[in-house]
Computed example of a mutant assay.
Amino acid sequence: MNLRLSSVKALDGYKLRDRQQILTLALEALSAPKKVMLRVAKLAVLTPFFIALAYFEGWALLPVLLAAGLSYPLLTTPIEILFAKQTFEQAIEQFKSEQT
């Protein structure tokens, strides 16, 4: 399973910013039901994490919120890559056409 954009074979040879743009294009190309499923999957992963935040109060919440903000992309990017796999080729073609 590809957990990082750098491990996606279809994106070999592209810079990090280009890979991120291609991922964005691939996610935009998903059908409406797939987009809903992606959001539900992300919500399912994040809900327990944010429920745990309810146990912190006052200043103790600040470092926990900072950690939550920093870990958000680490938790959601692999799910986005998994859903976008099927539309990477289309997104690469669109990216190439926008570059010229």
Results as ranks from 00 to 15, higher is better:
95 F>L: 05
64 V>A: 15
70 L>D: 00
55 Y>D: 13
5 L>W: 02
27 L>W: 05
43 L>K: 11
42 K>M: 14
87 T>K: 08
40 V>A: 13
52 A>R: 10
37 M>K: 14
39 R>Y: 06
59 W>F: 13
70 L>Q: 04
73 P>T: 10
99 Q>L: 11
55 Y>F: 15
83 F>D: 03
20 Q>V: 11
36 V>C: 02
23 L>H: 05
22 I>P: 01
41 A>Y: 02
60 A>H: 15
23 L>G: 00
62 L>P: 01
10 A>M: 09
91 A>S: 07
82 L>Y: 13
73 P>D: 00
22 I>N: 01
74 L>I: 09
51 I>T: 11
68 A>N: 00
16 L>D: 09
37 M>V: 09
94 Q>Y: 05
80 E>N: 04
79 I>Q: 07
97 S>N: 10
47 T>C: 10
22 I>E: 02
68 A>V: 02
100 T>K: 10
76 T>S: 03
38 L>F: 04
53 L>P: 03
57 E>F: 10
75 L>A: 14
25 L>E: 09
93 E>V: 02
20 Q>H: 07
18 D>R: 01
62 L>H: 03
44 A>L: 13
15 K>H: 09
27 L>C: 09
67 A>K: 08
89 E>Q: 15
90 Q>S: 12
50 F>Q: 09
67 A>E: 03
97 S>W: 12
81 I>N: 01
85 K>E: 15
71 S>R: 01
18 D>L: 04
11 L>E: 03
91 A>H: 08
53 L>V: 00
60 A>W: 15
84 A>I: 06
20 Q>C: 08
96 K>F: 05
84 A>S: 13
52 A>M: 09
78 P>H: 01
99 Q>S: 13
38 L>G: 04
7 S>N: 12
91 A>M: 07
95 F>Q: 00
7 S>K: 10
81 I>D: 00
75 L>G: 06
61 L>R: 11
34 K>E: 15
44 A>D: 06
25 L>Q: 08
16 L>W: 00
9 K>V: 15
32 A>Y: 07
76 T>N: 00
51 I>C: 04
64 V>G: 02
41 A>N: 07
14 Y>S: 10
57 E>A: 12
28 E>F: 11
85 K>V: 02
33 P>T: 05
28 E>Y: 11
15 K>G: 13
7 S>G: 11
14 Y>C: 06
22 I>Y: 00
41 A>R: 03
10 A>N: 07
91 A>P: 03
36 V>G: 05
99 Q>A: 14
43 L>F: 12
5 L>P: 01
25 L>S: 06
92 I>Y: 15
57 E>H: 14
95 F>H: 12
65 L>T: 03
59 W>R: 15
64 V>C: 04
9 K>T: 12
30 L>Q: 01
50 F>S: 10
24 T>G: 12
95 F>E: 04
73 P>L: 03
39 R>P: 00
7 S>D: 15
75 L>V: 13
61 L>C: 06
98 E>D: 08
84 A>E: 10
81 I>A: 04
26 A>M: 11
7 S>T: 06
79 I>T: 05
42 K>G: 05
96 K>S: 07
53 L>C: 05
42 K>L: 07
61 L>K: 12
12 D>K: 15
53 L>F: 09
67 A>N: 02
47 T>N: 04
19 R>F: 07
65 L>D: 01
7 S>E: 12
50 F>Y: 15
41 A>F: 02
52 A>W: 14
72 Y>G: 05
82 L>K: 12
